[in-house]
């Protein structure tokens, strides 16, 4: 009894410390949120002060200006297509690469992962050229598909590293039962990978939903294809930035992805428990 009480107290203190760190950590984000309720005057004079009153007029103005519902749908479509392709193609490739170690797979691994080292800005000009030729630019679906290429390297890398922790006996027993490689992957391996998949989804949803440069190159030309982040940047000018609207627009852009993150976090814990029971 004594020990568990001591532990409880320790945990409580720990939690308190982490919450303190988190508060410091989140402070700039908090500033973004409170400034989204202020007038231009309040933002410029003092970013740190609380808003004089809780005023939603910025939000009404920005939602209208951004054409929020349409752009929200665009974001949803692009992100969904991107994620589906990244998860499907990377997990499959990683499975083969990890399970069949030979010359070919080592080469494939190097080939898939190396692009993580190439800075995006160095091939922007030619990228748009290539995408124009194969007609992946200027459309939401096309942009979603492009994210497969940009997301696969990191996702495959993560999958390969976690794949190692899954004992080979599991797929071998499936083979003995007569399942094909693909079936083994779909019905045996992929479910075990659920926690990793959730991690990949979390990281990639956050990235695609809030990405700026690639959408700017590919889908900025029409309201029908534009993303939320692009619209948010319309409030930012060189000699005159409407900070109060810019912050509001950013809050409106980022919040859906954060809600999604918190929702998935709960799921990760469940996924791990489910996996360990099965294993």
């Amino acid at each position: 009894m004594k020990i568990s009480q001591k532990n409880k107290l320790k945990n409580l203190i720990l939690e308190f410390i982490i919450i303190l760190i988190a508060i410091v950590f989140i402070y700039p984000v908090f500033l973004m949120v409170i400034n989204s309720f202020k007038s231009f005057r309040e933002v410029i004079i003092d970013v740190i002060a609380l808003p004089e009153k809780l005023n939603f007029s910025n939000y009404l103005y920005v939602i209208d200006k951004m054409n929020y519902p349409q752009l929200f749908l665009n974001n949803l479509l692009i992100t969904a297509i991107g994620i589906a392709g990244i998860v499907a193609l990377s997990s499959l490739a990683a499975y083969i690469i990890d399970r069949q170690r030979n010359k070919y797979t080592r080469l494939a691994q190097l080939f898939i992962i190396t692009p993580m080292l190439i800075p995006f800005q160095t091939f922007m000009i030619t990228l748009l050229k290539v995408m124009n030729i194969i007609h992946l630019s200027g459309s939401r679906v096309g942009l979603g598909i492009q994210y497969w290429g940009f997301g696969i390297p990191m996702a495959t890398f993560i999958y390969i590293n976690f794949m190692k922790t899954i004992p080979r006996e599991i797929d071998e027993s499936a083979y003995i039962d007569g399942a094909s490689t693909f079936k083994t992957f779909i019905y045996v391996i992929f479910p075990i990978l659920k926690p990793v998949t959730v991690t990949v989804i979390v990281l990639d949803v956050m990235w695609i939903w809030n990405d700026f440069l690639l959408p700017l190159l590919m889908v900025n030309s029409s309201e029908k294809t534009k993303t939320l982040v692009l619209a948010a940047y319309n409030f930012v000018g060189q000699y005159n930035t409407q900070w109060h609207y810019a912050m509001t627009a950013m809050v409106l852009t980022v919040v859906p992805s954060i809600l999604f993150f918190i929702f998935l976090q709960k799921y990760i814990v469940k996924g791990v428990v489910a996996g360990s029971v099965k294993g």
Partner: peptide, 24 residues
Amino acid sequence: ELILFTLPALIMVSITIYLPFVIS
């Protein structure tokens, strides 16, 4: 199977990153 399962990933990476990077 090996080639088949890794091919889509290889193709996507090639057209979005390698091809533009090499041209560039």
